[in-house]
Lab assay of single mutants.
Amino acid sequence: NQESVVAAQLIPINTALTLVMMTTRVVSPTGIPAEDIPRLISMQVNQVVPMGTTLMPDMVKGYA
């Protein structure tokens, strides 16, 4: 089963992602794949992401 990127903390809107903000977990439905974490660093979220929420492609500016 593929791991997806999950918020390790509350991420406010327009925050640039850092490694410490993200963790990985096997979730359903699947979100952004864990191997894309290096690509996500410094990208901004376009909404508030509560802790434990799976990051979906449409939540990250410039990802999709």
Rank of each mutant, 00 (worst) to 15 (best):
Q2L: 08
A16E: 12
S42L: 07
M22L: 15
T30G: 11
E3M: 11
Q47D: 12
I41E: 14
Q2S: 10
E3V: 14
G31A: 04
Q2D: 13
V45L: 14
I11C: 02
M56S: 09
M56G: 05
P57W: 13
A16N: 08
I11N: 00
N46H: 12
T24D: 03
L40D: 00
V27S: 08
Y63L: 11
M51Y: 07
N14F: 15
V27E: 05
S42A: 10
I32L: 14
D36H: 10
A34Q: 09
A34F: 06
I13F: 11
R25V: 06
P29K: 15
R39I: 07
P33W: 07
T53G: 10
A64F: 07
A7K: 01
N1C: 04
T53F: 07
S28G: 10
N1T: 13
V45C: 04
M56H: 08
P50W: 07
Q44E: 10
A64Y: 08
G31I: 03
T53M: 10
N14P: 01
T18N: 05
P33Y: 12
N14K: 12
R39A: 12
I41A: 07
R25L: 08
L10S: 11
I32Y: 03
N46W: 04
I13R: 12
P38W: 09
T24E: 07
L19H: 15
Q44G: 04
Q2K: 15
M51N: 09
L19Q: 15
L40Y: 02
P38F: 12
Q47W: 04
I13E: 11
R39G: 08
N46A: 11
L10V: 14
T23W: 12
N14E: 07
R39Y: 06
V45E: 00
L19M: 13
V49W: 02
Q2P: 10
Q2T: 13
A64K: 03
S28L: 08
P57E: 05
I13N: 15
P12G: 10
Q47M: 11
M21V: 03
M59W: 15
Q2M: 09
P57S: 08
A16G: 12
N1S: 14
A16L: 08
T54Y: 03
S42Y: 06
T30R: 15
G52Y: 11
S4K: 02
A8S: 13
P12R: 06
I11E: 00
S4I: 02
A64C: 07
L17N: 00
T18Q: 09
N1W: 09
A8P: 01
M21L: 11
L19F: 12
P57T: 13
V45H: 00
T23I: 05
V48N: 15
T15E: 06
T24L: 10
V27L: 05
N1I: 08
V60L: 13
M51G: 07
G31P: 00
G52N: 08
I37K: 14
M43E: 05
E35D: 12
P57F: 14
A8F: 04
N1E: 10
A8D: 09
S28Y: 15
T18D: 10
T53A: 06
Q9C: 03
L10H: 15
I13Y: 07
Q2W: 15
L55I: 14
A8M: 04
Q47R: 12
I41G: 02
V26D: 06
S4T: 05
V48C: 04
M21E: 03
G62D: 11
Q47I: 09
V6H: 02
V48I: 13
P38A: 05
N1L: 12
V45R: 00
I41Y: 05
G52I: 02
M43R: 12
V48A: 15
Q2I: 14
I32N: 01
A8G: 10
S4D: 01
V60G: 02
Q44S: 12
G62Q: 11
Q9M: 09
V27Q: 05
V5S: 02
M56L: 06
V6Y: 02
L19K: 12
T15I: 06
S4M: 03
V48E: 14
N46Q: 14
T23F: 07
T15D: 04
V5I: 07
V49I: 15
L40Q: 00
I13T: 12
M51H: 10
V26A: 14
T53C: 04
M51Q: 15
T18P: 00
T15A: 13
V48D: 09
Q9V: 07
I41K: 06
G62P: 07
I41D: 03
R39W: 05
V60S: 01
P38G: 14
M43T: 05
T23Y: 11
M22Q: 01
M22R: 00
Q9L: 07
I32E: 00
